[in-house]
């Protein structure tokens, strides 16, 4: 309260901006995380800028070449450059993840908002259904959904998205319930604002922030889920590069040529760690 009471003077918005930049520079890990994420987005958008090798054409005489200046991640059994396959794989994996997060975030937010705002029987009914979907671990649910839809990267995205709707809905509902009981929402009703107005002007904007932080976290988790399903073989058919599949392909030779699975896997892990770090900073800012 003290800080709030004394911190108002001056052009506060400008100061807040410069402070944010200053804070960012003071957190090298966070800066590094942003750089990692930006590079990987670059991989997905313009893969040819980052590598001269083809992800598909290999030189069978040069199979399992260890990492070198020429082949950063080495080559696989068919002599294909694994770095190139990782770069091109970013597109497959990230597109699927983005789609999954959009599905989960969009539907989850709507379901959670309806439950929290409507309250009563509607709330109870929706939340019991959400309970059921929470009771089936999302990887298992995603596997079942993929098995019904058929194997493909798009279906993986759909499955991962659907299986995460429930957790988004739960977070959104909890947040909506907190906001609905705030004085400023009661105040708005007291001022004569209608239900729809209260929802659009107060409840939604104030509830979304924590769900957006969750969405940032879900990007990391989504990459993991997509890659896991790819690893298990439910994704794109083999010549296509996909991160989980890359690890799975290298796995049979791990005893002799460990880099073939470990380097693409590490690239994946670094990306997930970076997104987690970013989502943590988003959550802190919300507080």
């Amino acid at each position: 309260m003290t800080a709030l009471a004394t911190g108002w003077a001056g052009p506060a918005r400008i100061r807040a901006h410069s402070r944010r930049l200053g804070d960012l520079i003071r957190q090298p890990v966070l800066v590094l995380s942003w750089i990692v994420v930006l590079i990987v987005i670059g991989w997905a958008l313009f893969p040819s800028v980052f590598t001269d090798h083809s992800p598909f054409a290999g030189d069978t005489t040069a199979s399992f070449v260890p990492p070198s200046a020429e082949h950063w991640f080495g080559t696989d059994r068919l002599g294909r450059d694994l770095f190139a396959r990782s770069v091109y794989g970013a597109r497959t994996t990230l597109t699927a993840t983005l789609l999954a997060v959009l599905i989960a975030f969009g539907l989850g937010a709507v379901v959670g908002l309806s439950a929290g705002f409507a309250g009563g029987l509607v709330d109870t009914a929706i939340m019991r259904v959400v309970d059921v979907f929470l009771a089936i671990p999302s990887l298992l649910l995603a596997m079942v959904i993929v098995s019904v839809l058929g194997y493909s990267t798009n279906n993986i995205a759909l499955a991962v998205g659907i299986s995460s709707i429930a957790s988004f809905a739960r977070v959104m509902r909890a947040q909506v319930l907190t906001v609905v009981n705030q004085d400023y929402v009661r105040a708005a009703y007291g001022l004569g604002v209608g239900r729809l107005g209260v929802m659009v002007r107060h409840v939604v904007p104030n509830s979304l922030s924590s769900v957006i932080a969750l969405a940032a976290l879900e990007v990391g988790t989504g990459v993991l889920a997509v890659a896991s399903l790819g690893f298990l073989g439910y994704g794109a058919p083999p010549p296509q590069p996909e991160w989980g599949l890359l690890v799975a392909e290298g796995r049979d030779y791990v005893a002799v040529h460990p880099w073939a699975s470990i380097l693409p896997g590490l690239a994946l892990a670094v990306v997930v760690i970076a997104t987690h770090r970013i989502s943590t900073s988003l959550r802190k800012e919300n507080r």
Binding site: M1, L4, D183, Y184, A187, A188, R201, H202, N206
Partner: peptide, 8 residues
Amino acid sequence: PFTSLDPR
């Protein structure tokens, strides 16, 4: 007054 005004 710290809770009755929408912070946004």
